[in-house]
């Protein structure tokens, strides 16, 4: 099963670094600015709810879309966000502005992606750059309040460091889990994901030859 994850947030908060840490277990000090968009895939076993035991776990392919912080939906088009199963909002704990912009990112995502159930569409919030705790300018409490205000249920919140690999795996797993339970709750969401077929590895079949 393929789940589409979209990562949004201001420029320079560490979206590309988080993605690379999660998919490749790597961190570089020299990431270029993302221009337009990019995506990586990763396969993971994942349960639809937190209490599920191993036997209930499904093999999912996470297709994770990284976007340019400056792009603000304008160039990528509505079609790009349609069919997203979960959205990860990222800010930088040393940049209050990037936290304040979470509102804009959330609203713009809902407007452009127009999921069938706007109220319950799953978001995960990531506060990145925990390795720079000494430069912190956004208190944990403040972010937790924001999360509580913007969700009817619980909006999961993780403080991560892409550099030190702190909580990155947990945050993405949570996102996958929410996407999966969303998919099982809403049958009308599943057909959209069927058009995405498999991972790049399976494009090689030669069955149609005479």
């Amino acid at each position: 099963m393929l789940l589409k994850v979209v990562i949004l947030g201001d420029s320079g908060v560490g979206k590309t670094a988080l993605l690379n840490q999660f998919v490749n277990n790597r961190f570089s000090t020299s990431y270029k600015a993302t221009i337009g968009a990019d995506f990586l895939t990763k396969e993971a076993f994942c349960g639809a709810n937190a209490r599920s035991v191993a036997i209930d776990e499904t093999l999912v392919t996470l297709q994770i879309w990284d976007t340019a912080g400056q792009e603000r939906f304008q160039s990528l088009g509505v079609g790009f966000y349609r069919g997203a199963d979960v959205c990860i909002l990222v800010y930088d704990i040393t940049q209050p502005k990037s936290f304040e912009n979470l509102d804009t990112w959330r609203i713009e995502f809902l407007t452009q992606a127009s999921p069938s159930d706007t109220q319950n569409f799953p978001f995960v919030v990531i506060a990145n750059k925990l390795d720079r705790e000494n430069d912190r300018r956004v208190a944990t409490q403040r972010a937790q309040t924001w999360c509580a205000k913007n969700s009817t249920s619980i909006l999961p919140f993780f403080e991560t460091s892409a550099k030190a690999a702190t909580e990155v795996e947990a945050a993405f797993r949570k996102a996958a889990q929410l996407a999966l339970s969303q998919g099982t709750m809403q049958a009308d969401f599943i057909p959209e994901t069927i058009s995405f077929r498999g991972s790049p590895a399976n494009g090689d079949s030669k069955s149609s030859c005479c």
């Binding site: 990019d38 995506f39 895939t41 297709q63 058009s195 995405f196 077929r197 498999g198 790049p200 494009g203 090689d204």
Partner: peptide, 14 residues
């Protein structure tokens, strides 16, 4: 031309 899914083509082009 060997890839038969949009995402696979995009991944290759990226």
């Amino acid at each position: 031309l060997r890839l038969n899914a949009a995402d696979d083509c995009v991944a290759r082009l990226l």
